[in-house]
Simulated scan of single mutants.
Amino acid sequence: MKLPADVGLLLAKRFASQHRDWLAATAADRHWPQVIALGLPTEQAALRQVEAVRAWAEAWRAWRGPGELRWTERRWKVLGTQSLPDTLTLHEPAQAAMWSGEHERWQRAAARFDLLTARWPALAGRLPRLFGVLADYADADFQRLLDLLAWLLAHPRSGLYPRQLPLAGIDSKWMEQRRGVLVDLLAALREAADQDADFYALSGLRRPPVQLRMRVLDARLRARLGGLGDVTAPVEELARLALPVSVVLIVENLQTGLALADLPGTVAFMGLGYGVDLLAQLPWIAPARGLYWGDIDTHGYAILQRARGHLPGLASVLMDQATLLRCAPLWTDEKVQHGAADLAALTVAESLVYRGLKEQRWRPNLRLEQERIDWDFAWTALSQAVQAAHPGGPAPR
């Protein structure tokens, strides 16, 4: 026998799993009406729990809520004629939403669905999976979304940067936080076949240039740049430099890169993180020897693996087990480890440390940030690595 509270739990589960389907429903949809059997007992079952049956029937007599409650009459030999609750019929999703405590969200989502599809029918098939956007966006953000979609459709090839848009409350940060939603909606409106289409291609906006920060650590190389030693520029412009470098040093953290002193024939790139792919666009660094110095944590090795996809000869510095154990008092925590159990592009020594981190060999979620390493020790090791990689230096071990 289902009490009103039991029906509420049942409908809460249905809402959680089916609300997107309900939003997409048509008048002839198979979801409605929904008939919920309340568990009408037989006389034998009722005789075993008379008080429970009485309480169950009274609970439904006292109930006031959405849906059509159907009662049925039973003529029993022992208990006589009884009027008992039989089924509850819900005719629309709004009634189920009321039962599950989601009525306000449902009403808002349904109203916004109707508004958007009336204006842009092509969105009808896409919006149900964006239920959270429809249900939970603040009114101001939803209006901004409408304004932005309308403007982009009216100006399909504007060529403007995001911050140039003449729309109140919309800037590049606002759009970045909602990029997935915008791509989803624009792909439907542009009838894009590729669901992974690029936001800038779909919107007609101009992509802000991707910039790299590079330090030139050799006076002769700086002379080729008018004396500049710390350069931040779009990657396309850096690609045209053609500097005759012999060593390319990649350091994971910005301040570590800023602390570097001069090293012969060397340029350093810093703060790239997983953006190391960008270095593949600089053809003049390909002949150089590459060195990578990152944090000793799982993501540091994952970045190293990614960088090796573009610079196959890349060697790591200060990312070995000896450095890790030497700096034990400086260990911190890596909040979320990289997902891979192993990384194929690592050397044997690097894999030993990576697997140790994944297996919690030394302690859970261990991390050694590169900037915590004693600088005198680090600089000595780094200088020796550059000397070994530089033409005329000792052969690398």
Rank of each mutant, 00 (worst) to 15 (best):
H31M: 04
R14W: 07
G356I: 04
E350F: 05
R207Q: 15
M270I: 01
S246D: 13
L318M: 13
I373T: 03
R144W: 00
N253D: 04
C327L: 11
L205Q: 09
L258W: 11
V245E: 11
M1I: 02
A286L: 15
M270S: 13
F113H: 15
D198F: 02
V78N: 05
T26N: 10
L115T: 02
G294S: 02
A135N: 07
Y274H: 11
A55S: 14
G294Q: 03
E334W: 02
P244V: 01
Q281P: 06
L40N: 03
L3R: 14
Y292H: 12
A37F: 01
G132F: 08
A124S: 12
K77S: 10
A46D: 05
D141H: 09
P41Q: 06
L134D: 08
W71A: 00
L330E: 13
D114W: 05
Q305W: 11
R70Y: 07
Q195N: 05
G125P: 10
F131K: 03
W174S: 07
S246H: 12
F377R: 06
L182D: 06
G80Q: 12
D262P: 14
Q107W: 05
E176K: 12
F15S: 04
L212G: 05
L217W: 00
R361I: 05
G226E: 13
L225A: 10
